[in-house]
């Protein structure tokens, strides 16, 4: 019972909800760049939202189902094709044994997710299958390679094909305005710098990866401090470098950092950032913590509603 990776693509990894409880040892959480897309893909096939999925960039993975499989795709628009049939994004399907899934052409976003019923049964490390590229652990401990086989459970009882209503999707955009909270060192910014931060259109630079996005833009006129004693950071932390430039820490960020943490992207908007690539843009709008909390709770509730819908319609 397995899935064969015919072509691995450039950076295809197994991810899940992440590896928690080990940040004090310097072991980061890992996990998907677009947590929403991963969760939707899982829910569509009846999994737990944080089960193991494939995250793939373009050129993307090409896989062969070696057994009948109920699967779902979500995230970037990359024109998924099952044998010769184009698939709708944000949808679940049944693949018969021997069918092949590939992605033909990216039209929006940078990362697609493939979930299968029961989740990928790859190697668990410290309670998670997320690939930790720094530690070389979790699943294959590396990006997938041609010829890898991914074990799966022998379940395909449910083969319904469902698509998520568009109203549920975050407002994905190539130049999103994302909501941010002030970070622990926000107080280092004067009024001009805060205005600048929320008015500038930043561009994601080349060399941005799963660890972090470097932003091109007018530097913040806010110098005179350099590094500070290392302290904890998180997915979405925006760091201020000594030259006034910014970095957004992404899913594979290190556990700690020595640059001022001026702001943090609201978790509800991380999926918007997680779909960006070099050349895309981003701007920031400040919100307070309570608003960010409420938005995140709404997101949980939306996903719970989706789960109920899938449970209901999936039985037909």
């Amino acid at each position: 019972m397995s899935i064969l990776v015919e072509k691995a693509g450039i950076l295809t990894t197994i991810q899940d909800g992440g590896r928690f409880g080990y940040r004090s040892l310097g072991i980061n959480v890992s996990g998907p760049m677009d947590p929403f897309a991963m969760q939707v893909a899982n829910i569509l096939v009846g999994n737990k939202p944080d089960d193991a999925v494939i995250e793939t960039h373009f050129p993307a993975a090409e896989i062969e189902f070696e057994a009948d499989t109920h699967f779902a795709i979500a995230g970037a628009e990359m024109t998924a094709i099952l044998d010769d049939v184009p698939l709708r994004n944000w949808s679940s399907y049944r693949a018969d044994r021997g069918q092949r899934l590939r992605f033909e052409r990216p039209s929006f976003g940078s990362r697609s997710y493939i979930a299968i019923a029961g989740g990928f049964q790859t190697t668990d490390w410290l309670g998670s299958r997320a690939t930790n590229l720094a530690a070389k652990c979790g699943s294959f401990g590396r990006p997938l390679a041609n010829g890898d086989r991914l074990e799966k459970h022998n379940i395909c009882e449910n083969s319904s094909s469902l698509t998520v209503s568009p109203w549920m999707l975050p407002r994905y955009n190539q130049f999103p305005t994302v909501r941010v909270l002030s970070g622990p060192e926000f107080h280092l910014l004067n009024e001009d710098a805060v205005n600048h931060l929320t008015n500038e259109n930043y561009t994601i630079s080349n060399g941005s990866d799963r660890m972090g996005f470097r932003l091109e833009g007018e530097p913040l006129n806010c110098t005179g401090f350099g590094e500070m004693p290392s302290a904890a950071v998180t997915f979405g932390t925006i760091q201020l470098l000594p030259d006034g430039k910014l970095i957004i820490l992404m899913a594979d960020h290190q556990t700690s950092g020595g640059y001022p943490r001026i702001a943090t992207i609201a978790a509800v908007d991380l999926p918007l950032v997680g779909q960006l690539g070099a050349g895309d843009g981003v701007s920031f709008a400040m919100i307070d913590r309570e608003t960010a909390e409420s938005l995140l709770i709404e997101r949980y509730n939306d996903l719970e509603q989706l789960r109920r819908g899938v449970a209901l319609f999936g039985k037909k």
Binding site: P184, A231, A232
Partner: peptide, 9 residues
Amino acid sequence: VPLSESAIT
């Protein structure tokens, strides 16, 4: 201080 809506420092 909040580090995010899901963490405090």
